[in-house]
Amino acid sequence: MRSEQQEKEQRDNKPQDIEDIQPDAELAEQGEELSEDLDQILDEIDEILEEDSEEFVENYIQRGGQ
């Protein structure tokens, strides 16, 4: 197990502006948010999704690149 000292050292060594991921807490939180405002984001998608999706996706043809 890591000592607090080691953990502190590790934190101190990291660039300040790289936000640490706090795995458990943050993701749990993200999961809750999801259920709360999923409706909102789906409403937004309904609003901004290109109209005439069928025609649009059919006609979206690219030349192969690299």
Binding site: V57, Y60, I61, Q62, R63, G64, Q66
Partner: peptide, 10 residues
């Protein structure tokens, strides 16, 4: 990376 019709770009 794709047009979903077999054309990929990198």
């Amino acid at each position: 990376n794709t047009d979903y019709k077999g054309h990929s770009y990198g």
